[in-house]
């Protein structure tokens, strides 16, 4: 019994020192990380809003993958919405922000957070990756399957189809959500 206590005590001491060290590093890095995230969100919103006025963030209370939305207005009239939606990626959630017009057209998309594979799914973080979705919707199909793409775009997602399908499905859901909201 004494032996077990001694071994357990030594292991607990190592854990306690590790926890203190981590606490100190966290106290130093946390404010920097939070400020960087806030700045990233501010930049993404200003890019997505394309000059329109960004309204207050409205959280959705249902349990869907849509976290919430920002109305985009010019003057009194709501022209579009920025939807914050979670898609299913290859290695976890894809946190997306997308601007969708009242008519259901995808105006722009930014991938905010993901844990996809570097060099494959992570390519979706590049602005050029999202070009295949922009301008779709509002009568045309928002691509969510390789068969919806031309040969060059289909080639570019080789090895990362699940990421592409995850984004496509999320955008379709976001467009459906905007059509429910209507031009409030």
């Amino acid at each position: 019994m004494k032996e077990v206590m001694k071994i357990g005590g030594k292991l607990a001491a190592i854990c306690a020192i590790a926890a203190i060290a981590l606490g100190v590093v966290n106290a130093i890095t946390e404010p920097i990380i939070l400020a960087a995230r806030a700045e990233k969100l501010r930049l993404a919103l200003s890019e997505l809003s394309a000059g329109l006025e960004i309204g207050e963030f409205i959280k959705t209370d249902n349990e869907s993958s849509i976290i919430g939305y920002y109305p985009l207005s010019s003057g009194e009239k709501t022209e579009a919405y920025i939807i914050n939606i979670i898609g299913d990626g290859y290695a976890g959630d894809l946190n997306l922000l997308t601007a969708i017009s009242n008519g259901g057209e995808v105006l722009s998309v930014v991938l905010m957070e993901d844990t996809e594979t570097p060099g494959l799914g992570k390519e979706a973080e590049n602005a050029s990756y999202m070009e295949k979705f922009i301008g779709t919707g509002n009568g045309s199909i928002i691509p969510s399957s390789k068969s919806h793409l031309n040969a060059k775009d289909a080639d570019s997602i080789t090895g990362a189809s699940i990421t592409f399908i995850g984004i496509g499905k999320a955008l379709n859901e976001a467009a459906g959500f905007v059509s429910q909201l209507g031009g409030m």
């Binding site: 890095t29 946390e30 290695a91 976890g92 993901d114 992570k122």
Partner: peptide, 25 residues
């Protein structure tokens, strides 16, 4: 695990682009 967590926090704070590109690794 403690050293890895330190690397993760320091990388996210000071080298966010590299942190994003390495992801889950």
């Amino acid at each position: 695990a403690s050293f890895v967590t330190i690397v993760e926090m320091v990388m996210e704070a000071f080298l966010p682009a590299l942190y994003d590109s390495l992801g889950v690794f």
